[in-house]
Design a protein around this nucleic acid. Structure first.
Length: 436
RNA sequence: GGAAACGUGGCUGAGCGGUUGAAGGCACUGGUUUCGAAAACCAGCAUCGGGGCAACUCGAUCGAGAGUUCAAAUCUCUCCGUUUCCGCCA
């Protein structure tokens, strides 16, 4: 959520930001409503002030008759307040509805564009592998090796579910262990920072296994509740399944004020991501690229406002370090205004080469949220000089398991249908060199 | 699932329906003292919103919401959460 004061004073910036994001929003209506809201609020507050003052007089007044008169007067004022509050409540409801629709403004370096076709590749790394045979896609590879079973999953849970089995499961845990090793190691982080010439703290990430379900009101505060069609909901308990660890990592510090000395605060969360994939019928139906449930390691960090852009660059640097360690070719893509998330200030995705798809496909995203979520979550920082302000938040994928496994399978496939295991993962898989 | 207790500021912990936004302690900040530090002493120290150049001022907030009252941290109801005991369970 944006600050209403900021919206009032920077109407043009907010309006053009929304327009660039292709979000329809009637700011004039919001501002008119806001004027009304402030006027009514002032009237109610003044009346309440009167009651407070007179009530104090009443408590000190010894004269019985005068006291009864004051009490009667205040009873009338109270009724007046009640009536005014009714009206104020109606205005507030409309006001809030409109406020929730206002998207975050995009950063100055975000390219303007209507949809994903106008995203801009800002750099590319690595060579696409050359095969002296016709490369298969991961579904065929996985089926033949007996490590991916969609058919049984479809019978048991439905379409877009999978059984991962055997060495593929070991590989998933190898990825997790490898990454947790990096993310909790100050020296590795220092090296990444130095290589990219970044100006951020090397403070390690705290591993977290967060709740996999989230209350509706908390989801709303994360600005991730809508569209609800894409979320799994359990009516009997009025609760949603998370679509990412971000959804329950972000609210870890709701209504909290950090000390500046403790910043930044960094977490790496492991959780499944549940997605209904509404509206994607017929899209990516082959393999496990798009499924209802996949596991993910997700980064979530809280930092000082002036450091948040560097923090995002840092998270991207870690993503690239990871893909380079796996030897996978990728492209870093600046997401354009029309394709980026509503709460995002700046969004950068990484697409990894997948030979079976003959395309770079999205494996990572990083969202610089700035103060958009913190304003709703009420997460702040007390500066050294005593001032309190909103923190900035960043979140980023570090490893979406399914898609990373796809990339490894398709890039490391051999002519005989086996899969070579990337060297960095072998020590976590009993020294094994191939899945076959 | 059954029973009970409890939710107050960064922490701890008082709080009779009426100058209580909240005693006391700890922590923190500034000052005095010191060569420096500790200790001691003095002072300051919640957040949000409105108005004002400012000093300041008005309102809201004692888990959340609703209610009773001229007046609610204090009384009532609902919800959320925590703790303990019993049951069940990985």
């Amino acid at each position: 959520m944006l600050d209403i004061k900021f919206i009032r004073e920077n109407k043009d910036i907010v309006a053009s930001g929304a327009k660039k994001k292709r979000v329809e929003i009637d700011l004039d209506k919001l501002l008119t409503l806001d004027d009304e809201r402030l006027k009514m609020l002032k009237e109610v507050e003044d009346l309440r002030g009167e009651i407070n003052r007179v009530s104090n007089d009443i408590s000190r007044d010894q004269d019985g008759a005068h006291k009864m008169q004051l009490i009667e007067e205040m009873r009338l004022v109270k009724e007046d307040i009640k009536a005014r509050e009714e009206k104020l409540k109606a205005v507030m409801e409309n006001w809030q509805k409109l406020m929730l629709l206002v998207p975050n403004i995009p950063s100055p370096d975000t390219p303007e564009g209507k949809d994903e076709s106008e995203n801009v590749v800002i750099r590319q790394w690595g060579e696409k592998p050359k095969f002296d045979f016709e490369p298969k896609d991961h579904e065929d590879l996985g089926k033949n090796l007996g490590i991916i079973d969609k058919e049984t999953a479809a019978e048991v849970a439905g379409a877009r579910f999978t059984y991962l089995k055997g060495d593929l499961v070991l590989m998933q845990f190898a990825l997790i262990n490898f990454l947790l090793g990096i993310l909790t190691d100050k020296e590795t982080l220092e090296k990444i920072i130095k290589d990219k010439n970044l100006n951020v703290s090397p403070k390690p990430f705290v591993p977290v296994i967060p709740p996999f379900m989230v209350k509706p009101n908390v989801y709303l505060k994360m600005a991730r509740l809508y569209p609800t069609e894409d979320k799994y909901y359990i009516p009997s308990d009025d609760i949603y399944l998370v679509g990412s660890a971000e959804h329950t990592l972000g609210p870890m510090h709701m209504n909290h004020i950090f000390d500046e000395a403790k910043m930044p605060v960094r977490y790496v969360g492991y959780s499944p991501a549940f997605r209904r994939e509404a509206g994607t019928y017929g899209k990516d139906t082959k393999g496990i690229l798009r499924v209802h449930q996949f596991e993910k390691l997700e980064l979530e960090t809280f930092c000082l406002p002036e450091n948040s852009l560097q923090e995002q660059e840092f998270l991207i640097a870690i993503q690239e370090y990871f893909l380079q360690a796996l030897g996978l070719s990728y492209e870093v893509m600046m997401i354009c205004t029309g394709d980026m998330g509503k709460p995002d200030y700046r969004q950068i995705d990484i697409n990894t080469w997948m030979p079976g798809q003959n395309a770079y496909r999205e494996t990572h995203t990083s969202d610089l949220i700035a103060s958009f979520q913190p304003r709703r979550l009420n997460t702040k920082v007390k500066r050294l000089d005593g001032k309190v302000e909103l923190v900035h938040m960043n979140d980023a994928t570090i490893c979406a398991m399914g898609r990373t496994l796809i990339a490894i399978m398709e890039n490391y496939q051999q002519a005989d249908g086996s899969i070579k295991i990337p060297e960095i993962l072998r020590s976590y898989m009993g020294g094994k060199e191939f899945i076959k």
